[in-house]
Write a protein that binds this DNA or RNA. Structure first.
Lengths: 345, 345
DNA sequence: TAGCATCGCTCAAACGATTGAGCAAGATTG
DNA sequence: CAATCTTGCTCAATCGTTTGAGCGATGCTA
């Protein structure tokens, strides 16, 4: 492995000083046109590669940023990730990545590691149980940090998130419009701002219509998987057969509920309506297609990246928040309410 | 933003030389127990953060590695990515990420950028149309580079990939065992090693049983999406209604084919059998579940990471290849052959 | 007690870039 | 024509680490 070509080598080859080479490559006006062209030619001939580590050591700046995602396995985060990565690429930043697997230790050690590495800022979808105070401690001296997807209530970090309450309200409104009165809720058992926000939004919306969702129609599920959705749905069907509308924390849970209803002989969209959250691509594959609250993942990802770049540029700006409204996507899983054959109201 | 604490600050605070501090923090035996403990205490009190950029400049080493993925939107790559990232985290490497969006320019500029950044090596799932010679030119001086998922035939780069031919053979064998004789093929229109490998594997397997798959039963699809699968399936159903077994390049295509058959009134798994490739999580959500060739994504990802670490450690070792065999996962979409009602054989 | 390791540290030179100060030669001005 | 400015470079210090060489003090051997 041949040693790397440095400014020194170029300087020797061109018969000028190191400074001249450095300035020439960066188009400093104090270097003559002729020399600049000559030096650039030599650099490309010799296969010179800029050493950013040395440069940022000297300049005290950095052009990489970090992203730490609570759990990459959730397809939602992929879309956040690609949007964020694109945005950073556009502004010439390199992305340091970590998948925290919902583990606070992995998250903490990554944050420390990226500080060592000289990252300019951190985009974080905090794992469950992240303590704002602890995080402040780690990213002390107000290291540029922006939350996305999830936030921590009561902290003054910047964030870009979905309007969780709004989404659930849209869902309930639509179901009420279709004539539904007996709601069930699946999900929200996690200790995250999204879980809390959606539960709160759902309950508020139901209450606003003078309705309620009693405990036997609620399944607090922590894990967000298809299988968990099936089990929760089975429990609700057994306990509260008069339910005609099911609102779910996520599409994965909703798809599980959908599959379970289908297996139990219910016609989804006719006997029972189901609405999910996130609008995964898969939501449209099923039969019937899943109605869902579509989170503007690309927009939120972009916003998060921009917030971070802004925070890096102006560390002392006041806290910035972007809360992006979702919209409802209706497919076959929701339909007009028809009183259920088995029991109830 | 308070200035970063450096070895110099610690040295002043502890009343020793900078070298002593450096050695103490790295547990150099030449530093006394007492001083070492004292210095570490001061370091943690003052919130010292190791500057890896400076360190690797001096040591001429690096502890970050790069991953460039041709297209993160394909769920298959997520599983590769998480496996790779975990493996690198375990060995203390930081991951620089790029999603190339199947664009050679993005790929090339990332590769250049990560060289500037001082990455120790590159894990690459090359975009379509990557030229080995060009790549050699960019990563000149035998920069540690390992392909995963896809490889470039005829180049001497290391790689860790799935055994594509093997998977298709397993699929055809199973279908033949179920009595099928009239095959259709969907996919493989891309210019990638995976596309070529699977097409070759499929054709070889069919030929091995003395069968053939004439052109009217083949749909070369470049895009790998559900919608493309639907269209391809519709075309085949129209042109060759006697087909009873459909083998697809990917699960997304297969799911599209499955949906299309269902909509056309075919009972998948009875009237017609469909087999996909990759075994996406979604494959099991559908009704019927999709039989598929399960790629050992975690294993391949791990292998790729290990190959890269090995190549970094021994740059002059002979080329290393890992080709991991897939296995068949059978669900409801495949069943015994029953001559089709509409026409044929 | 001279000779020689060993211990526990300090000194100073790197690594590869950036940058303010400096300087010689030529152009411009009064 | 002397004074001043501009042009186009060079010099040397610097960023935060690491590391080989060096150096007193102590301990051990002969």
């Amino acid at each position: 492995m041949a040693a790397r070509v440095t400014l020194k080598n170029l300087a020797e080859a061109a018969g000028v000083s190191i400074s001249a080479v450095s300035m020439a490559l960066r188009d400093h006006p104090r270097i003559s046109e002729a020399k600049r062209v000559e030096i650039k030619r030599i650099a490309s001939e010799m296969g010179y590669i800029y050493n950013r580590q040395a440069a940022s050591l000297r300049r005290g700046s950095s052009d990489s940023v970090s992203i730490c995602i609570n759990d990459l396995h959730n397809p939602v985060f992929i879309e956040f990730l690609t949007a964020i990565e694109s945005e950073f690429r556009r502004s010439g930043k390199l992305v340091l990545l970590c998948n925290a697997h919902e583990d606070p230790e992995i998250q903490a050690s990554f944050v420390h590691r990226m500080l060592e590495q000289g990252s300019a800022g951190l985009l974080l979808s905090p794992v469950e149980g992240t303590e704002p105070a602890e995080l402040r401690e780690i990213v002390r001296d107000r290291f540029p940090t922006v939350f996305f997807s999830r936030m921590l209530e009561g902290s003054d970090f910047d964030h870009a998130i979905n309007d969780d309450a709004c989404g659930m309200q849209l869902a309930v409104e639509e179901l009420v419009r279709l004539g539904h009165r007996h709601f069930a809720w699946i999900g929200g058992g996690q200790a995250t701002s999204t879980a809390r926000g959606r539960v709160r939004g759902f309950e508020a919306a139901v209450a606003r219509f003078g309705l309620s969702c009693p405990p036997e129609q609620v399944e607090r599920v922590a894990e967000t998987s298809l299988e968990a959705g099936r089990k929760a749905m089975a429990a609700i069907l057994a306990r509260a057969p008069h339910v005609t509308a099911v609102v779910c924390f996520s599409d994965l849970l909703a798809l599980g509920a959908l599959v379970q209803c289908r297996d139990a002989g219910q016609r989804v969209g006719e006997d029972i309506s189901i609405i999910g959250h996130d609008d995964l691509e898969e939501a449209s594959y099923f039969e019937p297609g899943l109605s869902s609250v579509k989170v503007a993942k690309g927009e939120i990802g972009q916003a998060a990246a921009r917030l971070l770049l802004a925070r890096i540029a102006w560390p002392d700006a006041p806290p910035a928040r972007e809360v992006v409204a979702p919209r409802l996507v209706l497919r076959g899983s929701t339909g007009p309410c028809r009183p259920r054959k088995a029991g109830g109201s």
